[in-house]
Design a protein around this nucleic acid. Sequence first.
DNA 1: CGATCGTTTGAGTTTGATCAAATGTGGTGG
DNA 2: CCACCACATTTGATCAAACTCAAACGATCG
Lengths: 265, 265
Amino acid sequence: MSDGSEVGNGTVADALIRKLEHHGRLSEEERATITGALCGVRRHRARDDVIREGDPTTGAHVVLEGFACRYKLLDDGRRQIVAYAGPGDFCDPRGFVLERMDYSIATLAPSVIGELPREAVIGITERHPRLSRALWWATLVDESITREWLVGVGQRTAYERLAHLFCELCERLKAVGLTDGSRFALPVTQMELADTVGLSAVHVNRTLQDLRRDGLISLLGGELEILDWERLCRAALFDRAYLHLGDRDKGEAATGGVGHERTRR
Amino acid sequence: MSDGSEVGNGTVADALIRKLEHHGRLSEEERATITGALCGVRRHRARDDVIREGDPTTGAHVVLEGFACRYKLLDDGRRQIVAYAGPGDFCDPRGFVLERMDYSIATLAPSVIGELPREAVIGITERHPRLSRALWWATLVDESITREWLVGVGQRTAYERLAHLFCELCERLKAVGLTDGSRFALPVTQMELADTVGLSAVHVNRTLQDLRRDGLISLLGGELEILDWERLCRAALFDRAYLHLGDRDKGEAATGGVGHERTRR
DNA sequence: CGATCGTTTGAGTTTGATCAAATGTGGTGG
DNA sequence: CCACCACATTTGATCAAACTCAAACGATCG
């Protein structure tokens, strides 16, 4: 379970704890339990497969630093990224239940990834009900996000899809204290964005240019800056309810349209 | 919890039990527990909202007969169906955990729908580990299906998407004994199919005609007939692994292409 | 017998994909 | 420091998939 790239786990679990506390405050002991259960914490370079579809599972992986994704491949090479996992997010929330992986996991940026072994998770569910509910909640949010992505690729235009993705990431990263809401690291190529939102890389490029031209965002060198949150949300038809993050700084409600609207197909 | 359309629950739970037994054999007592826990069993007419997004939850709903779906609406009326639920399927597997619904549920055909109240599910998780694991498994499969749909809308062509949907439904219905693999009831309009696969109704119509022309299926009066399972699977790039149903009648593997192929976007 | 709803067909338009080439940009090694 | 390579982004031109609008045609139902 350990090799050259092993890493100590002092404060690396910060984001995880901050995320879980969104569901409810944790005691000092509960925090220690989670941190202590983390093992096999190791660095990965960018674009590294952490687990592949079909591999046997050993536990649940958590991103501590960096950025990873889940993806599925079609026989002919087409790829769909089905989730992003930033610091504090689980890569495979069900890794401790099913015996084999259902999809693959890869890093997008250089990352530190830890593992909660199956037995540790089972121990938590038996002895730490509050912590266990928090893990529960995290997997539910995860599911909810997948559904929202399905709605996006099924119904939203290219422009809306990218706008929506940026809104979502911003909210999620705010929740773990990795952005103040205006800038954050988004270390993905346009090809990866394309596989995320179900478009071609070329079209992603052009749509990004549209978003820039409209003064909604700037994306440069893996850094996303949100220039007009209000309008970005409206353009995306974004409603943060599905993230189940509570009501902090609510009131960013919608008002009208922002061009680029569409009605019924 | 009961009204005019209340229904007794004698053998209506058949499909549910048949489905859960795909995960592992259940004892007589376990079967009785599930059947006994079902309450509020009632008939719904077709196209009836069972629960709406935002409603408070009371438990988990199960389709006993008929056909239902989960869907989400965008502000401007666009709709995406995010799951189908046939006999034995849960409409809202997490209904007993979250406090408010994340999506809506509607019947597609006249249906009988029952409810496992929150307390009943909690009781099962505490006292019937094997049954509890089976429920666990059912929700995991559910999640896996959502991911596969995301892959579909993101990457598959219209032709592949519909073919894939038909393959999936056939396998799922086989698992609960509602088809022998060649014909089954598919009581949905082309508009509903469109909202399922993220296409327009007109395009669904034309793609269905293509599938018929190619001799893969026939769809008439709410009855789908699969005319060439092998070729349908190949056209869809269908791989049943994600349904986690075990290996019965395996060996329907792929061989070549069937026209309509596509490589990289 | 209209009225309603779903399916089908046609014509024209838009969105997004494909192919290909040009233009950065960041290393690496000489 | 520069030449070179690999890789990502950008641009242009062309093409195909899928959407929209509109109308016709069948069912089914009160």
